[in-house]
Design a protein around this nucleic acid. Structure first.
Lengths: 234, 234
DNA sequence: GGGAATATTCTAGAACC
DNA sequence: GGTTCTAGAATATTCCC
């Protein structure tokens, strides 16, 4: 999948254009072969090529897009020197725009626009906020350490949990009522608190069994003159 | 004294150019007569006219200067409408650039570059540093998130633990042995696993009670022919 | 359809001369 | 102050759910 969308209507047409030398004024660089591309006649290029792939025919808009996608203009010695660049030559390059390396096009990404509406207005306030935030973050200990401690805590708690579970299972009690005796049904108690949801979604490569559901015990129904017969399974 | 210097080498040449209709692609506007000027062929204008008055032949540089001196591009209906602006037409205007009003040219001033005071510069630097630091700290977001998840896990486990504790307390059973009866001493069982150490040293501003010590149950001593009397505290 | 992402256009910033 | 390259900002337009 080629993500070099740079407003190219058909993802690869401009690329093909370059590779096929369709226009003599739109070519790969021959100096550092294929490391940049040239536009040799801005006027013709803008009028003849651009409309085929964009909704405009302005070189400036094309350049804006190139910059937006990280292309940089190649400034050769002519510009800064004495030699007049008589030929109408514009050269652009991009780290990942290389002749014969279509697979690198996917690394060409549009720059994200930095939204800073409030920031510009109340610069001072934001500065303070930033300072505050940084201080807050600074005061925090190394997150890794925290993580480590927390993780040990989790392991410990899980072990506790397992142990308690075993205890509860062992003390699993059956109460037989004299009245309308339902023999050997488990004693159910409740402490009245709502059942906590199982929120253990943290996936960690630790060899830990999933936490068992706590052993809830429902209230015993009132029953007059009952004599509990209790069995203990150990 | 004419101050319309807009980089025009000779102060009035471009003006004369316009007024004399020297080029058919560089004209005063006829719509709102003399309130703006047109460049009808960017390519020719850039190559034929600009070098005569500037040290370049780029339309972009010319436009940059126009903007620098307060000229604004005139956006006509064509651009936003359905009619394709087939003619290569660029129109600029300035409040004080009016055909037949040379005397107003002196009001056209180059925009002053906003000189950043040292204080502002320093602030800007600090802001940059701060932003950088914040970005660094934000890269630790993963750890923070992990922390968050771990913390929720800890809280959940602690709740479970508390609940089980309550259950165990409720089911707190006294077994009275017939033989050398120690009445109503708590039943102690053990599942054989070692007692987990309490490693909860993580201090967090969470309103959580300290974890209670788990309810360990020791093994019942063997005792021949015992008949368990069991009380259930509910 | 509506909101986010992207394109197009005009203007300004910034580096360098 | 000028030229150049790049980015900001304001609209358009398109994309995608």
């Amino acid at each position: 999948v080629i993500t070099f969308n740079l407003a190219f209507q058909s993802k690869t047409e401009l690329w093909q254009l370059l590779s096929n030398n369709t226009f003599h004024f739109f070519l790969w660089s021959l100096f550092q072969t294929g490391a940049s591309f040239h536009v040799f006649d801005q006027g013709r290029f803008a009028k003849e090529v651009l409309p085929k792939y964009f909704k405009h025919n302005n070189m400036a808009s094309f350049v804006r897009q190139l910059n937006m996608y990280g292309f940089r203009k190649v400034v050769n010695i002519e510009q800064s020197g004495l030699v007049k660049p008589e030929r109408d030559d514009t050269e652009f390059q991009h780290l990942y725009f290389l002749q014969g390396h279509e697979h690198m096009l996917e690394h060409i990404k549009r720059k994200v626009s930095i939204v800073k509406s409030e920031e510009t207005k109340v610069r001072q306030e934001d500065l303070s906020k930033l300072l505050y935030e940084v201080q807050l973050l600074r005061t925090q200990q190394d997150n890794m350490e925290q993580n480590e401690v927390l993780w040990r805590e989790v392991v410990s708690l899980r072990q506790n949990h397992m142990q308690q579970q075993k205890v509860i299972n062992k003390v699993s009690v059956c109460v037989c009522y004299d009245c309308r005796c339902v023999s050997c049904r488990p004693l159910m108690l409740d402490d009245g608190s709502p059942s906590p949801p199982s929120t253990s979604k943290f996936s960690h490569s630790h060899p830990m069994e999933p936490v068992q559901e706590p052993f809830y015990i429902q209230p015993v129904r009132k029953c007059a003159n009952y004599t509990p017969h209790i069995k203990i399974f150990v």
